[in-house]
């Protein structure tokens, strides 16, 4: 009897061992399994292999970090150069080789460039145009997206298809005629000309429509049964639910106003209505001897870039989300 018991227990041990081996093979690639496998395979060989693998793994990681670190330096260097150049004196800036850290900080460069470039007016103009055009454009976008997403009317799909088709056409094609149109309207050198032509953005309508469509239609029907009006429903339900998209649109639109260059230069290039980018490029920063004063110029560049970085730091999530979905460049 005892012998039989022994044999039986041996058998169960063996089968248990087989089971564990099978299990280990199934999860072999994971790191924890490596340790277990060692017991079954030749221990010495396994140690060699895993040590080698570990060295390779560490080397690869070091390589990855080195490459990424180098690229990050390349990406960051222009910003660093802008900042340190903006507080150097002209003499120090012109030194050879250039100093990597300013010997003396001259913050007066910022005051000088603010006055020389008339940055105050430029800032006010740009913010005004950006805010007004964003607000109006949001209203138009929300109304249009709502109509496309929720309302039924004849010709809806044809109209929407047409809107999407216009996205294919490069903006330069519109600019030619728009230049004549605004000229005929007598809008040259006004704020209107900077705001009105770009109020409708088909892409934002598309983006918001997609977002609105995700909100279940039952909500709308329930609201209708309760006698809620369309606008109230839009305001109380749709807009809060689509808020992240709306914030993304707002930020991208504001950034667009901040960075637009060509159209303002064509149609509103007078002192009073000039926008920031245009003003920055139009002014030549020179010292008393009429020689280019790069530090003062860099101070102006830093001041123009600062608001963008602020927005980025605080609203990074919305910007990255908006950009990855929209795919608009600049």
């Amino acid at each position: 009897m005892d012998e039989l018991k022994e044999v039986l227990s041996e058998e169960t041990e063996v089968s248990a061992e087989i089971e564990t081996i099978e299990n280990e093979e199934a999860v072999a690639p994971s790191e924890e399994a490596d340790v277990l496998v060692q017991g079954v395979m030749h221990e010495r060989d396994m140690k060699k292999v895993s040590a080698k693998q570990r060295v390779v793994k560490i080397l690869v990681q070091v390589g990855l970090y080195a490459f990424l670190g180098f690229m990050a330096l390349v990406v960051l260097f222009p910003f660093y150069w802008m900042l340190i150049s903006s507080v150097k004196s002209v003499d120090e800036y012109n030194m050879n080789p250039p100093t990597l850290f300013p010997q003396k900080f001259i913050f007066h460069n910022y005051v000088e460039s603010f006055n020389a470039a008339n940055l105050g007016t430029l800032f006010v103009n740009t913010v005004y145009v950006g805010v007004v055009s964003t607000l109006i454009s949001l209203v138009i976008t929300v109304l249009s997206a709502f109509a496309f997403a929720r309302l039924e009317f004849k010709g809806k799909n044809v109209l929407f298809g047409f809107l999407l088709a216009t996205m294919m056409i490069p903006g330069e094609l519109f600019t030619i005629t728009n230049y004549q149109t605004v000229n005929n309207f007598g809008w040259m050198n006004t704020y209107t000309v900077l705001i009105v032509p770009f109020l409708v953005s088909v892409f934002y309508i598309y983006l918001l429509k997609q977002n609105f469509m995700q909100i279940p239609n039952e909500l709308y029907l329930a609201a209708k049964v309760d006698g809620t009006t369309d606008l109230k429903y839009l305001w109380k339900v749709m807009i809060p639910l689509a808020l992240p998209t709306l914030i993304s649109i707002t930020i991208l639109k504001m950034m667009g106003a901040w960075n637009t260059y060509v159209w303002p230069k064509l149609v509103a290039n007078d002192e009073a209505h000039r926008l920031i980018t245009n003003g920055l490029r139009a002014i030549s920063f020179v010292d008393e001897a009429d020689k280019p004063n790069i530090p003062v110029q860099m101070a102006a560049v830093a001041m123009v870039s600062a608001p963008l970085f602020m927005v980025f730091i605080f609203l990074r999530k919305y910007i990255m989300k908006g950009v990855s979905r929209s795919g608009i460049k600049g």
């Binding site: 990424l68 690229m71 990050a72 990406v75 960051l76 222009p78 910003f79 150069w81 802008m82 150049s85 950034m255 901040w258 960075n259 260059y261 920031i276 980018t277 920055l280 490029r281 790069i294 110029q297 860099m298 560049v301 123009v304 870039s305 963008l308 970085f309 927005v311 980025f312 990074r316 910007i319 990255m320 950009v323 600049g330």
Partner: peptide, 25 residues
Amino acid sequence: LQTIFFLPYVTNSIAIGMVFMAMFQ
């Protein structure tokens, strides 16, 4: 690192162009 690599997107291409000019000049 992801944030650092995204930084050039939120710039004014004319302004930073002027920085590149200064670096190469």
